[in-house]
């Protein structure tokens, strides 16, 4: 269990500021949500934490250690990411076994077979799926494989970028249950991006509302149902979601 601290995170692409002065802290074992419209920079925050983008300013710490000071291997074993589209994030010509073996090989971990089996069992897939290819899996199964791949290095922090928005309601329910169960059992810290406030409410303890590269408000989950936000944009976003759910 490790906390995540982001301080004054900013990034520009050319002259365009993408993130400005982002700051939040996620306690060890907490699930923290990031919401906002597309283009508001939610995914970019995750990409900075995962060091998929490197030219940012500010400070990001995981378990108290500056991620820029962590050796690559240690960083990969502290934080892993699950992407939105399970169709795009698995190599179409690699079997599940190959996809899951790669991190084990790179990190020279012992007992590879045991780890493969454990990861697959943990996400609720039968062992014979090891020899399947992505096209032989449904969307929900693929997302489970992507989660298994993230888990195999036993990271403390999982970054979840819209993990269920490419999935149907019923498959979404499966994946969300799995993520809740894993957090309860293994004490992961989650930072989760979603445009669906009902999903955030179901999963997260606190959330940050983002607009145009800034955090406009950080709220407790309890503030959603009665729309207790103070910032006008946050209020509008929550109101739209409540209206969508309540109906006319």
């Amino acid at each position: 269990m490790k906390p995540v601290d982001v301080e004054d995170l900013s990034i520009r692409l050319g002259d365009v500021p993408i993130l400005s002065g982002i700051g939040f802290s996620v306690a060890a074992g907490e699930c923290f949500g990031l919401v906002g419209e597309s283009g508001s920079g939610k995914s970019t925050v995750l990409r900075c934490i995962a060091q998929l983008m490197v030219h940012w300013q500010g400070r990001i710490r995981i378990g108290g250690t500056d991620i820029r000071r962590m050796p690559l291997q240690e960083r990969c074993r502290s934080v892993q990411m699950v992407f939105q589209d399970p169709y795009g994030s698995l190599h179409p010509r690699q079997s599940v076994r190959t996809a899951l073996s790669e991190p084990i090989r790179i990190h020279r971990l012992d007992r590879p077979q045991e780890r493969l089996e454990r990861a697959l069992t943990e996400v609720g897939l039968p062992l014979h799926f090891l020899d399947r290819f992505p096209h032989q899996l449904s969307g929900g199964q693929r997302q489970r494989v992507a989660i298994a791949r993230a888990l195999i290095l036993e990271p403390a922090v999982l970054l979840l970028d819209e993990p269920t928005s490419a999935l149907d309601v019923s498959v979404q329910a499966e994946v969300l249950n799995l993520l809740s169960e894993l957090r309860r059992r293994r004490g992961f810290t989650y930072v989760m991006v979603s445009h669906d406030l009902a999903v955030i409410d179901h999963m997260c303890d606190r959330l940050a509302v983002m607009q145009a590269g800034r955090i406009v408000e950080i709220l407790d989950r309890a503030a959603l149902i009665g729309n207790g936000a103070r910032h006008p944009y946050a209020r509008q976003l929550i109101e739209a979601s409540l209206e969508h759910e309540r109906g006319r």
């Binding site: 309601v169 019923s170 009902a198 409410d201 179901h202 759910e245």
Partner: peptide
């Protein structure tokens, strides 16, 4: 199967 805002989680 749908999560709801204010649901019991």
């Amino acid at each position: 199967a749908q999560p709801r805002i204010g649901g019991d989680r």
